[in-house]
Design a protein around this nucleic acid. Structure first.
Ligand SMILES: [Mn+2]
Ligand SMILES: [Mn+2]
Ligand SMILES: [Mn+2]
Ligand SMILES: [Mn+2]
Lengths: 221, 221
DNA sequence: AAAATAATTTAAGCATACTTAAATATAAAG
DNA sequence: CTTTATATTTAAGTATGCTTAAATTATTTT
């Protein structure tokens, strides 16, 4: 019933709805999945017929309760695998996402429960994203702001990185900008909205595009 | 190029050729894969076109060097996963095979190398089957005989179990007939070729069909 | 050697999941 | 309000991997 393809559609719709806070368009979804609009439109009809999405032609789509349940389950498997690969098998921060992208579709509930237990029922994945629990509940994210809004002179801790592409993650790794790393805002340049940060005694400049992907919480001394 | 389906065909051909020590017929392969002869015949043509099997119509098929390389690689992934699931994630002896059956197709060489390293470069899987090394070499099996040929009064150690179905493995688990378990042959009944064995101070009768699946080596005191 | 039986292949068709090209609906400009 | 541009859907076609039924080849039996 729920193939690899469908799981990927549902997961992607879920993430896009979270971003948008509105229905997802065919072209948006197609772009994320890197397939044609035609294929996406086709699949929308099928998912709708199966009761997994609410779909209004030419308007957009949202997950039904049933569709969301599947999406959350795929995300659960993805994030647990990511953490497992890092903690147990010593994969690097930049390596886990691509591997998890495959494993998420071929892991039984039984096995994923074992993995969760082995990790001690963790709440967040290596990117700071919440790991859905077995019952579908999702741990809350609190007190996070985009690095773009951080203020000069204050100290922050990295709590989440939004982009999972290995290039960006490898770049952050090189800067020492790991999850839970501490940093200070040294300057904000208004003409290009870039930010100068200090990490581990070194200074780095981040463009506003990149800073937007990092979420931090303030450290109050 | 090498899809899940093709990997399963190649792996199954490999195992059947090992059993037969001759070319594999369409119907034999179809039976193992639980699909129609027609589908198998169809795929044989495709695998042959791709240079993965030598196939003579109406006669049978064997793996080419290239096909065997893929088959051995799938088997390597399968057996490493089985051992990993048992040792690291505490799955039971009867549970590992079915999970590995899926994971074997979605594990990069990179990841499987990490798993192999984590396990300390093991030579045998939980069923006593040899784990192919990265370079394609397969550890040798030595000094094993089928339990059918074991002699009354002598002691043996379980070295390999040929059937991986969870029903049979669960049955062996219940008897205490685990890998490396020690047993003594108490009697052999000639009228039905069944065997009476002692394991952990208890006696069990094994039919000849079942005894055939167990390979042992003698313990010399 | 011919006929009967069994194994195998070919043919036709279906489901999934894509593609490009054409048609159609919606949104934006004038 | 009509025209134009953009987004979306439908149509037609492809590849994979199955199915059942028909045709063909190989093997046994007589
Ligand atoms: Mn990820
Ligand atoms: Mn993640
Ligand atoms: Mn197995
Ligand atoms: Mn095994």
């Amino acid at each position: 019933m729920s193939t690899i393809s469908k799981e990927n559609y549902l997961k992607t719709i879920y993430n896009l709805v979270c971003d948008n806070e509105t229905a997802v368009s065919t072209s948006q979804l197609a772009a994320k999945l890197e397939i044609s609009n035609a294929a996406t439109s086709d699949m929308a009809k099928k998912l709708s017929d199966q009761g997994l999405i609410d779909y209004v032609k030419y308007k957009g789509m949202e997950l039904t309760e049933e569709g969301e349940k599947i999406a959350i389950d795929v995300i659960r498997r993805h994030r647990l695998w990511e953490l497992f690969l890092m903690k147990v098998l010593n994969l690097s921060w930049g390596e886990v996402h691509d591997e998890a992208e495959n494993l998420e579709h071929f892991t039984s509930n039984f096995l994923i429960d074992k993995i969760e237990k082995h990790l001690g029922y963790p709440k967040f994945d290596p990117h700071g994203e919440p790991i859905p629990q077995k019952n579908g509940e999702i741990p809350e994210i609190t007190d996070q702001i985009s690095l773009t809004f951080a203020e000069v002179g204050r100290e922050y801790k990295v709590m989440r990185v939004y982009d999972k592409s290995s290039e960006l993650i490898d770049y952050f790794t090189k800067l020492g900008l790991l999850l839970y790393a501490e940093l200070v805002i040294q300057d904000k340049l208004s003409f290009d909205n870039s930010i100068l940060i200090g990490v581990n005694g070194k200074s780095h400049s981040l463009s506003s595009e990149v800073a937007n992907k990092i979420f931090v919480s303030e450290i109050r001394n």
